[in-house]
Design a protein around this nucleic acid. Structure first.
Length: 587
RNA sequence: GCGCCCGUAGCUCAGUCGGAUAGAGCAACAGCCUUCUAAGCUGUGGGUCACUGGUUCGAAUCCAGUCGGGCGUGCCA
């Protein structure tokens, strides 16, 4: 099944084609002037401009050539050449009923599935996952769900930051604090302990100390750099210690991702590309792509058509260590060769734009990218209520786990104020509060267009009025509740009938889901689905305020209304699932 | 210096490959619970779309410049 707008656009496109004008002018959109029609087509204006003709004449001709006129209750020309269209209620009813019969609710699959890799630019080992990692997790997760739903073959990779200089910094810091450990003894030949020398919380505390020291002490930084290089080249003690760091850290990260409901197909890291690096560098050297520049080995990036000048990508630094760009190239090589990636999405902070520009150009120039399309799915910064990068009241970064607890606490408070769910068992209340809290945080993040910075204001997100996650869950849960009560009374949902004035807005709203999913897919921006699902919730709430379903005596009408509610619920379930948001049974 | 992003209602933001009267949430004000969850619904007020010029039948949207803000700028990731 195709979307209604696609169908209408094709219809108008054919009419333009019929009169010798490109079908692309047939694009139909939801009307900006609902008083004049439900849909509009502005193609005649653009076409007339290109052809230097009178737009009204073009529009008139096009309308004469239009097929399937019987589905329109009104077709009219307005202003300089706008075409306004209103569908018959019979057609709208039949269309929505058709969506209901479709398992996919009218959302088409892609024609040619692609192999898509989603790179989450994962959190760094040894750093607790904090609110700054929310965006890539939440946006990337929604994107992987949407791409999969459209029929692509998706491989998501958390892609841990487990290989950079921070590892060398940690190794040296631990050496300073516990020099007696065997990992630092080059003469040590025995097996290394299986138990990690450091617990997760200690590791998290170690990193800031290491970071501070290296920032203020160039010698410490040099030592870290050397240690990093030695780690990369395989020094056994460092490798063993590094393994502990990764394992200890991963356990915490896995727990955090699980509580967010985010899953990955691959739990790889930068280190996994390491084995491929020597051969890759050798080949690139052999092909003449690598040059010496101020002691480093670099790939120069001469601008192609329309590109700006950009600095070369450093692949080997003057200590002989590899950089994260090198790692990215090797990782990409693996994704292209082994996963046959057609499209690679890097869901990473916008501030790394220049880095990806360099890596992508290097990958294309050297042929590593093959035919794969590389995209930096950039997102903006999350700021605190003061407009500056988000910090806790104490000035530190807030851990993800603490954030979820706070959201849960606020949800609990709000529920008790409103006397919501007060008769439910305590356990269920807790579960609802947690679900609502996480939904509040996720929706607040996803509803902003990904490229814009946004202000993280937990009080606002958990206020639960207006455009919030809780409002959506509330609407979804209400529809569940109505359907449940209907069943108790022996009523069941029936075929959706042609709408009257009360139902029409809801039916028209329901037709738009496939376009919202398509927008998310094409623009890699979940905010379009957020907007859709909010509009649906609001339209449904209005409908429910006007039409009292269970007290309706006309059985056919009641069944149709229940059919509508059921379809709304299925749309909520699909849309919220694609956003990674869970719906409670009741609340 | 150079590069990227941004400036829309009191606040937070949509809308930007040109289209009709610039939208939403919050906040403010006025209504609606003996009926399926009032975390809801209805209504009112609120705008030099940073500024200046240009292209166009038509500009928040495109182009040039100005002002203001954020971010990034070779050996971290």
């Amino acid at each position: 099944m195709q979307s209604l707008l696609t169908k209408l656009s094709a219809l108008f496109g054919d009419a333009f084609e019929e009169i010798g004008i490109g079908s692309s002018h047939g694009t139909v959109v939801v009307s900006a002037r609902p008083d004049l029609g439900q849909f509009q087509c502005n193609g005649a204006l653009a076409a007339a401009k290109a052809l230097k003709r009178n737009p009204r004449e073009v529009a008139e001709q096009m309308l004469e050539a239009l097929a399937e006129r019987e589905i329109f209750a009104d077709l009219s020309l307005a202003g300089p050449g706008f075409v306004n269209a209103t569908l018959t209620d019979a057609f709208i009813g039949e269309w929505v009923a058709g969506m209901g019969r479709d398992e996919r609710l009218g959302c088409p699959l892609v024609e040619r599935p692609r192999n898509v890799v989603v790179d989450f630019g994962g959190p760094n080992v040894a750093k607790a996952m904090h609110v700054g990692h929310l965006r890539s997790s939440i946006i990337g997760d929604s994107l992987q769900r949407v791409f999969r739903y459209r029929g692509d073959v998706v491989t998501s990779d958390v892609h841990l930051g487990d290989w950079g200089r921070q590892m060398g910094m940690l190794i040296m810091e631990l050496k300073r604090e516990q020099p007696g450990l065997p990992y630092f003894d080059e003469a040590y030949t025995g097996p290394y302990p299986t138990e990690p020398p450091i617990a997760s919380e200690d590791l998290e505390a170690l990193y800031p100390r290491a970071n501070d020291r290296c920032k203020n002490d160039p010698e410490a930084m040099d030592a870290a750099r050397v240690a990093t290089m030695e780690l990369q080249q395989g020094r056994p003690g460092y490798r063993a210690l590094w393994r502990h760091f990764v394992d200890v850290s991963s356990a915490t990260l896995k727990r955090d991702f699980e509580s967010l409901g985010v899953q990955f197909d691959l739990w790889l890291g930068e280190s996994d590309a390491n084995p491929r690096i020597p051969a890759m560098l050798e080949r690139l050297e052999g092909n003449g792509f690598i040059e010496e520049d101020q002691g480093a080995r670099v790939i120069k990036l001469p601008p192609a058509d329309g590109e700006k000048e950009i600095e070369p990508l450093i692949v080997v630094n003057r200590e002989g260590g590899v950089m994260y760009g090198t790692t990215d190239l090797a990782t990409l090589e693996q994704r292209v060769n082994d996963l046959h990636a057609d499209l690679v999405l890097y869901v990473v902070d916008a501030r790394q734009g220049r880095h990806f520009d360099q890596v992508f150009r290097a990958a294309r120039r050297t042929g590593i990218a093959g035919n794969a399309i590389l995209e930096h799915v950039a997102f903006g910064t999350m700021n605190g209520p003061d407009g500056k990068p988000f910090k806790t009241r104490e000035g530190g970064v807030m851990k993800l786990g603490d954030l979820i607890s706070m959201a849960t606490v606020q949800a609990t408070e709000r529920m008790s104020e409103a006397e919501i769910a007060k008769d439910y068992p305590g356990e269920e209340q807790e579960l609802i509060a947690r679900t609502v809290g996480i939904a509040a945080v996720k929706y607040a993040d996803l509803m902003n267009h990904r490229t814009s910075d946004y202000i993280f204001d937990l009080d606002k997100f958990t206020r639960f009025e207006g455009r919030t996650g809780a409002y959506l869950l509330y609407a979804a849960v209400r529809s569940k509740s109505i359907l449940r009560k209907a069943t108790e009374r022996g009523f069941s949902p029936g075929e959706v009938l042609a709408p009257g004035d009360r139902e029409r807005p809801l039916l028209l709203q329901l037709t738009r889901l496939p376009d919202a999913v398509e927008d998310v897919y094409e623009k890699r921006a979940p905010s379009f689905l957020c907007e859709y699902v909010y509009d649906l919730a609001q339209t449904l709430s209005r409908f429910l305020a006007e039409c009292h379903i269970l007290s309706e005596s006309d059985a056919a009408l009641r069944a149709s209304w229940l059919g509508l509610v059921e379809l709304c619920l299925r749309q909520f379930e699909l849309a919220l699932d694609l956003l990674g948001i869970e719906i409670p049974e009741r609340m």
